[in-house]
Write a protein that binds this DNA or RNA. Structure first.
Lengths: 139, 139
DNA sequence: CTGGATCCGGACTGATACTG
DNA sequence: CAGTATCAGTCCGGATCCAG
């Protein structure tokens, strides 16, 4: 961090060659990186329905592992999208709920879900057609 | 897929063996898997501005490799989100442009971008605060 | 109940070299 | 210019065991 002495530092310390950011691709990445991972969206959707405890989330999202649930909720918590309330009882009890920002994200996600449902068939069809064409071309 | 005798051909017959699918997490995965990978969004955003050739896309998206651009465009093409026009000239020339469906996706993406820009700071702040708190707790 | 720590296999990505 | 093929490095996700 001390810029005073670091004369050379042959490190590849140039991983921020971001350039474009001209119109639309500015902070998109931040959001999509999160939406990209399998579970974040599902957790958000589930929490959009109301307050949930750890176990409840786990049960509500078939296939998620404790590890992933922990990581996902932690990230959402860290980003201020989820509020985490701990009751120091025995056994422990932790409640998760969306913050206002989290709710707005849930809104976006629902928009995506709508789009997805709306174009799902079209995409599937296009894909099938494409595959068929490729097959045909090779023969 | 050549259905020889399919009398009815239940196109959408697949009831989607998904477990939950109760409200919102039906086909979301399909879309987000695509939005998740680093480049798809950027390509879509770029193509939303107009027709682009391969090289143009490559230049417009700093950091993308030919390989990734090829894969990304191919996937979008396959899904019917992008149209691919080949001019058998010398040298070859290939144009990419969004299909109507692709444009609607671009619309969604822009919505995400707006949301992202709107809450970017809030998230950054929350994250910083969170990190600080964690630090504090350990001391 | 909640969640941290570790091991490990698979998927995705990027760099490079080659073809038409 | 447009695209394919190969290879190696990285990271994510899942399973498991352990702790408060």
């Amino acid at each position: 961090m001390s810029a005073t002495n670091t004369a050379v530092t042959p490190q590849v310390a140039a991983p921020i060659p971001e350039g474009p950011c001209g119109d639309d691709d500015c902070g998109i990445r931040d959001v999509l990186d999160r939406l990209g991972d399998k579970w974040t969206v599902l957790v958000v959707v589930e929490l959009a329905k109301g307050v949930r405890r750890f176990r409840e989330l786990e049960r509500a999202i078939p296939g998620i592992s404790q590890r992933m649930l922990t990581l996902t909720t932690k990230r959402l918590w860290r980003d201020g999208l989820v509020e985490r309330t701990v009751y120091p009882t025995i056994p422990p009890q932790v409640e998760y709920r969306l913050t206002p920002v989290g709710h707005s994200l849930a809104g976006m996600v629902n928009g995506l879900a709508d789009w997805s449902r709306e174009h799902k068939d079209a995409i599937a069809t296009a894909r099938a057609t494409w595959d068929a064409d490729q097959e045909a071309d090779r023969l």
